[in-house]
Amino acid sequence: MAGDSEDPNDETQYHLGVAPDDVADTVLLPGDPERIEKITNQWDESEIVAEHREFRTATGAYDGAPISTTSTGIGSPSAAIAVEELARVGCETFLRVGSCGAIQPEMDVGDLVITSGAVRQEGTSDEYVREGFPASADDRVVAALVAAAEELGHDYHVGVTASTDSFYAGQSRPGFEGFEAAGSEERFEELREAGVLNFEMESSAILSLANLYGLRAGAVCTVYANRTTGEFRTEGENRAAETASLATALLARMDERAREAGADRWYPGLGLGDD
């Protein structure tokens, strides 16, 4: 059997360059490294703690709650690396923050999609677990994201996301010179008719790994395009980041309520501890 690791360093992680004291328990996971600054601009305080390849990590505080964010680049392979190495340094909660394409006609550009579960139309999670294993979001993370979106007044939809390996063929877009992958249109219609809300490229791997490792995860993405209406605008970029940041503070309150009640985990009857 292969050795445990090719990396002799037990502390600092090979790809991310982070050590246990660098990150909070909860981490926001955008794709683009340039989104890190846009996210941390909304926090009370922050500092960059590591930067290597596509992985840029910052740690700080939001509404009194410790919080970190790590960019993952594009796609599930690098997102899985981020989850693996962040878990190794003690992170327990992961919130994917990104953009997406909606596939239901009633969804508007700028709306949020809060993922309850994901279609595993990517190959990374297949290398971890059998095809039928569910990529489900943690119910507490979903509840915190919904509460945050409500408090912020953002329009949102809760439901199933499809995660793909390809931005073009995998999401039924034409490739170079109009190339169309076999079955792409049928796949698009099948997902739309099944009520799937959106396409993106990381959530199902993040959710699958979190479930395998006994961690909790969720995802919130801003709609940039509606694939059924043809509308496209980079509108509401900060809404997903705002929602995930507030959700982190709400999760801290939820965890505190569970501890006060002597419960194993938070449930809606515990509330958020407000007077």
Rank of each mutant, 00 (worst) to 15 (best):
Y168F: 01
E180H: 09
A181E: 10
G214M: 15
S184A: 02
F167Q: 06
E177N: 10
Y156Q: 08
Q171T: 09
F199Q: 05
E190S: 10
V160Y: 12
E193F: 13
N198Y: 05
F179P: 01
L191R: 12
F176V: 03
N211G: 15
E177M: 03
S166D: 07
G178A: 00
Y213I: 00
G170Y: 11
L152S: 06
R216E: 14
F176E: 01
L215G: 05
E202G: 15
A182N: 02
E185V: 08
L197I: 11
D155R: 13
V158M: 09
L191M: 15
A217H: 10
D155M: 01
E190Y: 08
E200S: 10
P174V: 11
G159D: 13
E150W: 04
Y168A: 00
R192K: 14
A217C: 12
A205L: 11
G218P: 14
L152Q: 09
S184W: 06
S208F: 04
S204G: 09
G183C: 07
E193I: 14
E202V: 15
R216K: 14
T161Y: 00
L209V: 08
M201F: 06
H157C: 13
Y156G: 03
G170D: 06
G195H: 12
E202Y: 11
G153E: 04
Y168N: 00
E151T: 13
A149H: 03
V158Y: 14
A162W: 00
S163C: 08
V196Y: 14
G195E: 13
G195P: 12
E150I: 07
G153W: 10
R216G: 01
Y156F: 12
V160N: 02
S166W: 02
F176I: 00
R187N: 13
T161C: 10
T164K: 04
A162M: 07
A149G: 07
E189D: 15
A205V: 14
S172W: 06
A205D: 11
L209Q: 15
G170L: 07
A205M: 05
F179V: 01
V158E: 13
G183T: 05
L197K: 07
A169R: 05
M201D: 01
G218W: 10
F179I: 01
S184F: 01
G195R: 12
Y156C: 14
L191V: 05
E151W: 06
S208N: 09
Y168P: 00
M201V: 10
A149P: 05
Q171V: 00
V196C: 09
A205S: 15
F176K: 00
T164Y: 03
A182L: 08
L197P: 02
E180F: 07
F188V: 07
Q171R: 05
G153A: 05
E180S: 00
R192H: 13
A194E: 12
G218C: 09
L152H: 13
E202C: 09
E190Q: 09
H157Y: 07
E193S: 10
A217Q: 13
R173E: 02
E202M: 11
F176W: 04
P174A: 00
E180I: 07
